[in-house]
Amino acid sequence: MLVLTRKKGEKIVIGDNIVLTVVDIKGDQVQLGIEAPRDIPVHREEVYKEIQEENIKARKTERVNLESIQKLMEKKKGE
């Protein structure tokens, strides 16, 4: 991994069209500005991980689980 030291207001340029700017630093928090073409997805890492975890949980579904929520749905409709 390439590690660069930057001060507030300084930038890092990646390729032709991605620019990272250190907007602000407060304690252990860094605010970054990201300029990238609209076709490049930018996400916090946690979001990826969360979705991955949910997908892994979702794959454990069995037919009985589905039946249990379908029963619940019918019950609600009847209420």
């Binding site: 979001v47 979702a58 579904t61 029963k71 619940l72």
Partner: peptide, 18 residues
């Protein structure tokens, strides 16, 4: 959306972010 059905089906969740 993907649905996660836990042991207690009342706690079923749906992934709206992905």
């Amino acid at each position: 959306c993907l649905v996660v059905i836990p042991e207690d089906p009342q706690k079923t969740t749906m992934n709206l972010k992905g």
